[in-house]
């Protein structure tokens, strides 16, 4: 097990499990917005502009200003970035894939936010329009984005919780169930 110091090290060491749980809460809240929106459109048959998810129902400006989903996007991106060093081996690869995809997802939301704030719409649109939205409708597009970020992220979490010995040797946290003293160095694993 590697030993580091500093805030990033603590996030990816002693507090990695807690931070992952916090991150999961954000992810679930974000999913709730999209799932409720899908329910409002496809089950309740609401017009799309009136399908504002959970928070948007109470504070529509959160949706019209694009702050709600941009906020989720940037928070998820920050979590994915900060928590990456805590992963190792296969889980790090999957987490990295989720991070890369979320980065692009965040760019899309940034474009929407800029347009909503400036009132200048790109690509000749009459509403804020992102790049991929030119070919895929918005609700479907962001369900897709959330899925392709979510699936590798969940796989990464699973592999992180059930690592191989070599992977376990290269993590600095106790997410996989190790009861480790974070103040004491742990011998590096040697395989036979």
């Amino acid at each position: 097990m590697r030993q580091n110091s500093g805030v990033l090290a603590r996030i990816n060491g002693r507090y990695h499990r807690v931070m992952l749980r916090l991150f999961l809460i954000v992810v679930i809240a974000h999913w709730a917005e999209h799932l409720v929106q899908a329910y409002q459109i496809w089950v309740l048959n609401k017009p799309r502009p009136q399908a504002r998810g959970v928070l948007g129902q109470f504070w529509p400006w959160l949706v019209t200003s694009e702050w709600l989903h941009y906020g989720y996007a940037i928070v998820m991106l920050v979590f994915l970035f900060l928590l990456l060093p805590g992963f190792s081996g296969r889980s790090k690869v999957w987490w990295g894939i989720a991070l890369g995809l979320q980065f692009w997802h965040h760019i899309e939301h940034l474009l929407l936010l800029i347009q909503a704030q400036t009132g200048t719409f790109f690509f000749g649109g009459t509403v804020p329009t992102s790049v991929a939205q030119l070919v895929v409708p918005r609700v479907e597009l962001h369900l897709f984005y959330n899925s392709v970020v979510f699936i590798p992220m969940v796989i990464a979490m699973y592999l992180h919780l059930r690592p191989t010995p070599a992977e376990r040797a290269n993590v600095t946290c106790d997410c996989a169930g190790q009861q480790t003293s974070f103040s004491q160095p742990v011998p590096r694993v040697t395989t036979a």
């Binding site: 459109i41 048959n45 017009p47 799309r48 502009p49 019209t64 509403v127 609700v139 479907e140 369900l143």
Partner: peptide
């Protein structure tokens, strides 16, 4: 600010029916 659902609004029928997107 936002486009209504593709295919029109529900103003004519008073109710919009959306098909579930199969990919989603």
């Amino acid at each position: 600010l936002t486009d209504p659902a593709p295919g029109g609004t529900d103003a004519h029928a008073g109710h919009t029916a959306h098909d579930v997107d199969p990919v989603s």
